[in-house]
Design a protein around this nucleic acid. Structure first.
Lengths: 209, 209, 209, 209
DNA sequence: AATGAATGAGAATTCATTCAT
DNA sequence: TATGAATGAATTCTCATTCAT
């Protein structure tokens, strides 16, 4: 009786382990980690409750396993595809990619962010695998821009975070606060506005479009 | 440094109800809402477990009661104290107040934000009592600035959110991610940088300090 | 601080003790003994919860006190008022009185009967104070009738119980089963029919009206 | 003496669900529904407390499940087996069956009757599954007897209830009041007497044995 | 006498986890 | 491997009862 084969194998999308992982993600999203029951996850995954524990030692381990997909390379690669010509185009692509990425995984991020409060290992992984990998290309872009004299001299760590913060606040608005019924923002418009403000804010010369 | 900013009365700090509320806040912060047990709250509050339910019908109600201190007026007032001369000074005050306010209540916000996902009433109250009240003065400031021709024409709803997003991201960095051991930011420096970028971003004329 | 003055005194209808007793009876009727809470009884009685325990040591004692009104004499007297001329008239009066008495106190009887299962003292009191006192006059009537040669020779204990059983079943139908929406019986008709059957059943000579 | 009269399957007498049901019945009988604890039921059933809730969602459902054995058909069938020759024999069989049936299930009936006060669904089921099914054959017997000119014209609904009332009162005497130490009745004698009175009471012609 | 805040021993119910099949 | 019945510790909430005022 092989005890927990680990959580990484069973890469095939249809394998039991993947089914469970997928189901867990959905239930976690719906109910939160604590309120999600293994019974419900099993039901959604189409497996017996006991089967979950053949793949994951504990419910907590199941949560951690959800971080696995975020491999350093992938997240990095995702953000390096930005190949715009102008700075504006580049930041545009950063933001669009960021938005896409965050929206795609927001259910997960929310849970992981919340639970990482109680599980330091989770926190560290999340920072390394997701957050830093996201910031990195923008920080590099800014540094390069400053070297080239295009951007004012700012702290790239600060500026990069501020950049993402400007957009993330809108994701939080609709995803966390679900406040779209208060004001609904047009994604395109928000991106334009944010980039406008931001670029004017860091460009060296008086901003001209 | 004003203590208990934005908080209500606490008429008799030692009253049982207040003790319970305070204990709940601490335990919630430590464990999260679900993982916090009424037994532990009672222990910390120094009352019997049953006593909790003399003051709050359910554990959930105890959570909701934590929102009460955030009265619309008070939160509003808090942000209207900004009486700087220049725009820079005004935004400075906004940000400093915001930072103070958020940091003071971050433990609460985190819980309320997370739980509001599962309790719509909570969500709505939080948005109305805290979020909108925070945004309002900045939106007004921006609108006025645009009218007066100081600021470019931007959507104040977007710009105000972007403004707070630029800073909030740093609060999240240290409070949610607890990532100060990765990079530790200097609060003063961050505020300066953020305002610099932001003001240049929205000022009409080429930015001059 | 006078400890429980007992439950008998305070005879005045408006006294605290009586208010409590009355409230208890109503709540017990509504919810049953176990589901009734002292808090609710206190509220209905218009007294503080603690006050109940100045009059009755325990909730159980409060239940027992409800039996007090049924004094041997009263119940006896109630059934001795039957002063009909003919046997038919006499039984008629017995039944009418019985019905009146049972209906008036059914809420109490139901509770006492049920709870007497778990409290032998209650059971004994109930039998002596209510049941036997009710049967007695009919048993006597039957015995006399047999002596006088009007009735066949039957066991008066059995016949008296059978007599009340014939009617009580209808009270149970509407009060316990609340089955009036299945069939609704006319009280007058039932009494007539029951007496008809019963008198024919015990009269010595072939029955003639 | 047929065992489990009117009871359903019990497919595997030892199955956990049946054990629990049986234990519940016993504890309910002993303590009443409210005072019975799931802990005690579990102990008596020889299962863990949680196991109860794998079989019955709530304690209340456990109560309801006790009604299931009383299938309309079976209860009906039970009372249709009366195949006596004379009317006296038939009523005799009715009563004997009734007595057997009631005594066998009295513990249950008492609880169900009491609790049906607070649970309308229970009440309705009890009336339909047990009470009406019990009355029906006697009502039919009476109707037929009237048609055939054997019985006087009486309301069969009333007469049938009165009939069972005459006997049920004795069951109540020993089972509810547990008053056998006051007077102990001989079952055989009671039945004879009751039938005697009843038949004389409804027969058309002056009664002759 | 009257109060009602405080108590804390239970009660029903949930659920992650185990393990025999 | 997969199962799912069984477990029982843990949890929220109730309520009769006490007692200081």
């Amino acid at each position: 009786m092989p005890k927990k084969t680990g959580m990484k194998k069973t890469p095939a999308g249809g394998s039991k382990g993947q089914q469970i992982l997928q189901a867990a993600r959905e239930i976690f999203k719906e109910k939160g980690f604590h309120a999600a029951t293994t019974a419900e996850i099993a039901r959604k995954a189409g497996v017996a409750e006991g089967t979950i524990f053949n793949y994951f030692r504990t419910k907590k381990e199941l949560l951690f396993a959800l971080l696995e997909p975020f491999n350093a390379e992938e997240v990095g690669a995702f953000f390096c595809q930005v190949a715009g010509e102008t700075d504006r185009e580049k930041l545009h692509l950063f933001l669009e990619n960021h938005l896409l990425f965050v929206k795609e995984n927001f259910d997960l991020f929310r849970i992981l962010l919340y639970e990482s409060q109680f599980h330091p290992e989770l926190r560290e992984q999340f920072i390394n695998k997701v957050v830093l990998k996201t910031l990195e290309p923008v920080e590099k872009h800014l540094s390069k821009g400053m070297e080239e004299g295009v951007y004012r001299h700012v702290d790239p760590s600060i500026a990069a975070r501020a950049f993402f913060g400007m957009l993330t606040v809108f994701v939080a608005w609709s995803e966390v606060l679900q406040a779209d019924d208060f004001i609904q923002f047009d994604e395109r418009e928000v991106i334009e506005e944010v980039i406008d403000i931001y670029l004017r804010g860091i460009k060296k010369t008086p901003f001209k479009r």
